[in-house]
Design a protein around this nucleic acid. Structure first.
Length: 609
DNA sequence: GAGCACTGC
């Protein structure tokens, strides 16, 4: 039954022990580094031991769920979607025969909304729990509760070997298994003195490495598009004037890069390759052949400032766990090396772990989900880390104003409908109201494009300017309507690829917007029957303004900036807005975010507040 | 004149 490959995995020696542990305990923890085989093998062991059980395995990312299902199917020599399948957004590859389902944790939360007992599964495995996403934290809370109601249910938490005691205490279990993986060692070097400018330091380190060390590709961790482009330019320049013969291929990798350009970073290169990447290469993406890692020591982190009610996207030092994760990327093939552009002393002072997501994001949609799952008092719900009470209370009150909850915080019919849509509550509210007012096509197009990121792609020094392109599509002083217009024009155009090229648009992004639109349309069919349509921009703005009632701002001439109605904070219109450099008196916005300045993103002019 | 970490439903 078990082929030789499977028997060689480190986890195999633990097979009997783990099966027994699952029999004896309701909740068990399995910790092991990547490569020990826990994710692919444990579900199969459970199935082989008791072929009647239905198993769910969650993953933070959709690609992981899909590839893992494929791998396991191959090992069991079954067709994908039969015995073993996956279920991710836009792609359900399961059947009535499916016993092992790999799914994203967001998907399992949606299943909780439909069936609060999750009766279709006998065993639930939460994988990569150490990543501490909002979804996996919430799932752990829900499963902890569910274990009291369903005594036969088995829950398995899988994670890297960190914070195990914390998970064990929280889940009240002593059944812990630690699996050693066979990974190659990575030699870590720190710079003796920290350089002021990590871009310069990065370039020097890469070149020195290139000219002195034996063959093997390099992965460099930077923080964003800007420093990646800087390093690339300088590297290419220095290589040109270098007297050394050895060539170096410079590739980039970050999520705003169109997928076809990202692919270049994976191709085998004749010369040594250096991939300049964001933390996308930390967990989401693996590049083969990496022997050297260079780590700048920083990462951009998005956090929600509770008092000011603004998001920030700022540079922060990495955590120790993150630095280890980055270094580990050098040891996947053979023994590797990691160069850190910071001192040993700086390393010692780093935080052990990054603050979990649930403690640093706005929780409006999570709280609506919790209410939809039937949690009476979300303020006292037992999560592994409790979010700020005042933030949750503020979120509850916002949901009351959006009529998702009544004054006693009970879920309304409208709230139930809102929670069924894969959108932020404001947008769910907007879409439902827009349907009722007969502006559904405009609203659907607008919301669909607003869901996707990186609509435009500008290479450094691109001829076409953003304002010129925006000018072509601009409608009614509104980013929301302008984006709806872009999607319409895209759909009407025959040659979509050249349309995108002309307008610096991202083809894959618009394709995704179309999938989103179709999905929203399908969901909306279950909520309302209304489908008459009129083209009324004023009505659109009126409904949007009501949905974004906490996101109004007024221009203050003395400050030359916008004053947010909610907090009196000053902010500027983002350069990617059609209203950039214009000064309409009243605006509504989707998001306020601090990067280099406090910016309002996706802005629409309105007549009055 | 000036900007764009990463996931997920």
């Amino acid at each position: 039954m078990l082929n030789e490959f499977r028997m060689q995995l480190p986890i195999f020696q633990f097979r009997e022990k783990i099966i027994k542990s699952i029999r004896d305990n309701q909740v068990i923890i399995i910790a092991g580094e990547t490569g020990c085989g826990k994710t692919t093998q444990i579900p199969q062991y459970i199935y082989e031991n008791d072929p009647g059980v239905k198993i769910a395995v969650t993953q933070p990312r959709r690609v992981a769920a899909m590839t893992l299902a494929e791998r396991c199917s191959l090992e069991k020599q079954t067709k994908l979607g039969q015995l073993i399948g996956y279920n991710v957004r836009f792609d359900d590859c399961t059947s009535k025969d499916t016993q092992i389902t790999f799914l994203t944790d967001g998907m399992l939360i949606r299943e909780f909304i439909i069936d609060q007992q999750l009766k279709r599964y006998d065993v639930i495995i939460i994988d990569e729990a150490h990543e501490r996403t909002v979804q996996s934290d919430l799932l752990l809370g829900l499963l902890k509760n569910l274990c009291r109601k369903r005594k036969q249910l088995k829950v398995i938490l899988m994670s890297a070997t960190m914070q195990i005691e914390k998970f064990a205490n929280y889940l009240e279990t002593e059944a812990i298994h630690i699996i050693e993986a066979r990974t190659h060692t990575v030699d870590v070097y720190n710079v003796p003195i920290r350089q002021q400018d990590y871009v310069e330091s990065m370039v020097n380190t890469i070149l020195q490495l290139h000219f002195t060390q034996p063959e093997g590709d390099i992965l460099a961790f930077l923080t964003g598009q800007e420093d990646i482009e800087d390093v690339k330019e300088i590297l290419i320049e220095r290589m040109k004037i270098s007297t050394q013969e050895k060539q170096l291929d410079v590739k980039m990798l970050y999520s705003a890069l169109p997928p076809e350009v990202q692919l270049e970073a994976f191709q085998k290169s004749v010369h040594r390759k250096v991939v300049l990447a964001t933390n996308i290469a930390e967990t989401s993406i693996t590049i083969d052949g990496i022997v050297y890692v260079v780590d700048c020591g920083y990462v951009k982190i998005r956090s929600f400032q509770i008092g000011k009610a603004i998001d920030t996207l700022l540079l922060a030092p990495v955590s120790k766990a993150q630095a280890e994760q980055r270094a580990g990327r050098a040891g996947r093939q053979r023994q590797g090396q990691c160069y850190r552009l910071y001192t040993q002393q700086t390393y010692e002072r780093l935080a052990k772990y990054m603050l979990p997501e649930i403690l640093r994001v706005n929780l409006l949609s999570v709280i609506l989900q919790m209410k939809a799952i039937g949690i009476q008092n979300v303020l006292t719900f037992d999560l592994i880390d409790r979010p700020d009470m005042e933030l949750m209370l503020a979120n509850l009150n916002q949901l009351v104003k959006l009529k998702a909850l009544d004054s006693e915080f009970n879920l309304t019919e409208h709230g139930k409908n809102m929670s069924s849509l894969p959108l932020e509550p404001q947008f769910s509210h907007f879409l439902i109201k827009a349907y009722e007012c007969g502006i559904y096509d405009l609203a659907l197009n607008s919301i669909s494009v607003l869901q996707v990121e990186n609509l435009f792609y500008f290479q450094r020094g691109a001829k076409e300017s953003l304002s010129k392109i925006l000018g072509k599509f601009k409608i009614a002083n509104s980013d929301h309507l302008t984006k709806a217009n872009i999607l319409r024009k895209y759909e009407e155009t025959q040659n979509k690829k050249s349309f995108c090229k002309e307008n610096c648009l991202n083809h894959k992004t618009l394709q995704k917007a179309i999938s989103v639109k179709q999905q929203l349309k399908d969901y909306m069919k279950r909520i309302t029957k209304k489908e008459f349509e009129k083209e009324d921009y004023d009505k659109f703005k009126q409904v949007l303004s009501e949905a974004l009632m906490f996101k109004h701002a007024v221009y203050s001439p003395s400050d030359q900036a916008y004053k947010l109605k909610s907090t009196n904070q000053l902010a500027y219109i983002h350069p990617e807005s059609v209203l950039f450099n214009q000064k309409p008196k009243y605006v509504i916005y989707n998001e306020v975010i601090l990067t280099k300045k406090v910016y309002l993103r996706d802005v629409t002019e309105i007549d009055e507040l």
